[in-house]
Design a protein around this nucleic acid. Structure first.
Lengths: 354, 354
DNA sequence: TTGAAAGCGCTAACAC
DNA sequence: GTGTTAGCGCTTTCAA
């Protein structure tokens, strides 16, 4: 027992009348231990609530049981939900998650990654931010690749040609359903607003938006893509302003925000300008966190099952940390989204206007 | 250099032509090192981007540079904001935060705490949940106290007679200002809804609500306290239903939700029932996260400066981990809240009705 | 001002 | 099946 009163494996070994090896084996289920000794050891451990020192363990095993997760902003419910579900899965595997916010500040991200490396995280998961870009900035990529030499990296965007593992959200089918349904309900003028085309998730949504509407026979000018380099509700409001500058009050009847925050900003600005939702304009968004549920009116939204996403990630991590062979699974995994219809979208009120 | 290609302090020592002791001293600023050697060592470290293994370091120093933070639910922006600000402060001190959600499940919390103990977190911070109770359940308290023998514990509620350190949010002054302003604007019938009186934050808000209104001469029946054991928007909606059951449409003109989520639920349910906010009813809440800003109408809210809160916590942690003396500061620290008025509260439309 | 050497608490060959 | 022993990579006495 050390000075702080903490038990060590030696104390347990002594009390159970066995060697430390046997204690270690009994705890971890590695190697042979007779049933009686195992029970004895486990009983002592339980009785004294022995908790092995993770530092000593990590020093020898070179595994920490810790996942480093990098996100731009947990205050955004999308990332919070991602984290929450991952953490829940991780706990089932006796993993912890160190969550790092980097506020879209690549320098801060660099510092965080260095700290995570020191702490010997078993894997680095980056959700959102630079790894979502088609072209990751070279300086940032360099930081990641250096870390990647010792630590596997998972992203939700770019796999950089298989260097990292990407677990992506696939909105294609759900977006198609959303648009088909809107068409069915009489909408003929659409817009998708906000976001930045350099980002993979934005790019994919745009492509599918354009493709599906084209197939439905919607003309180019009625399938408006409005880029606005901002992913929060402020950006959504701004987009409505821009639409009104262009069309006056005759703006598209179906507006999709590039993510949930943008869609909420769109709603707020529409209401401010006297539009009724969904009577005058229908609105939809992505991400489908609890926010879509609580805003007024509640928001039609496309999002993945976060639990499923977390399971996919944990599944990869489990494979990654099994020392036996290297990782042999896919370098790009997809988790599909679903459409949840709520109050913000409905029939087009003047289906013959256009 | 070990098999994974990672540098050790031995490699650095060799390259710099000094002993490992000197390298250690140069890195950590402990003990004497001549200027030249120090510079030499630091140059080598920088050049090879040496990152000392935190396990080995922690094994000897018994400090991890990690804070364990326990919250019921990071998806709730209140906790997310708390975490974000703490993490930012922590990073400035080269600390990381391991965030643990326990979903109001004390058993899960127990498992998380055990894991955090193994990982040798320097301090345990619990925000929300059982530690907010005037009477912490004995089984939970036992878990905490056991952990507390090796690890200092900070809560935002109960200090359990000085056993833990409590950093509390003090809403008293801001709540007084809110009520005085409402009175000024003609409101004479008030309600504070949601929450559970066994929780310290709820209890304190109730006390102040009652005290201030009494002083303003508001009768007992016009300073309604409606308990509802639920802290989310669902609970807020439910409270409006209950008020309407009791008063019909003649409900109090000024309704305060016990927290932000509840207030948002109140707003949503009022709108659903055809009330206009703030024309018919004014609404206010607590917490004042970005949600208060983005909901429609934006919500008048009372909340602390989270940055300031985080600084207070980090300040304590810094003192706690300075080995020299034990912690000598206060066992209960307060961070004051401020009132932010927004669209949801305004004049009472029928100031002479009661 | 510097370095040799002894741990920190655990795991994993290896030998029995 | 079980135990002995040699590390893992750092810090920290202690002696020089």
């Amino acid at each position: 027992m050390d000075e702080k009163g903490k038990l060590t494996i030696y104390d347990i070994a002594k009390m159970a009348g066995v060697s430390t090896t046997t204690v270690s084996r009994a705890m971890n289920g590695t190697g042979y231990v007779s049933k009686e000794k195992k029970e004895k050891v486990l009983k002592v451990i339980e009785e004294y609530e022995f908790k092995p020192n993770a530092f000593a363990k990590g020093l020898t095993t070179r595994r920490s049981g810790t996942i480093g997760m990098l996100v731009p902003d947990v205050i955004n419910p999308f990332f919070a939900t991602m984290f929450t579900m991952l953490e829940r899965e991780a706990l089932d595997h006796d993993y912890n998650v160190i969550l790092c916010n980097y506020y879209n500040d690549n320098e801060s991200a660099g510092k965080q990654i260095a700290l995570l490396e020191q702490k010997q995280v078993d894997v680095l998961l980056q959700v959102g931010g630079p790894t979502d870009l088609y072209d990751i900035p070279v300086d940032y990529l360099e930081i990641l690749e250096k870390a990647g030499k010792n630590t596997p990296i998972i992203t939700n965007g770019n796999s950089v040609g298989g260097k990292f593992i990407a677990v992506q959200v696939d909105d294609d089918e759900a977006l198609k359903n959303l648009l088909a349904d809107a068409y069915e309900k009489g909408h003929r003028r659409f817009a998708i607003v906000g976001g930045d085309g350099r980002y993979i998730p934005t790019g994919k949504k745009w492509q599918q938006f354009d493709k599906v509407l084209k197939e439905l026979g919607i003309s180019k000018e009625n399938r408006k893509i409005l880029e606005y380099d901002n992913f929060d509700s402020y950006g959504g409001g701004k987009c409505v302003e821009l639409l009104m500058e262009e069309y006056g009050r005759d703006i598209p009847s179906f507006i999709i925000g590039i993510n949930e925050s943008v869609a909420i900003g769109v709603q707020k600005e529409l209401v401010k300008n006297g539009f009724l939702i969904p009577k005058d304009i229908s609105v939809a968004g992505f991400d489908n966190t609890y926010l879509s549920e609580i805003v007024t009116p509640s928001l039609t939204s496309i999002g993945c099952d976060y639990r499923e996403y977390a399971k996919a990630v944990m599944n990869i991590i489990a494979q990654l940390t099994e020392k036996k062979s290297g990782y042999t699974g896919e370098r790009e995994v997809r988790v599909v989204s679903h459409l949840v219809k709520r109050e913000s979208s409905s029939y087009c009120s003047d289906r013959n206007a256009h």
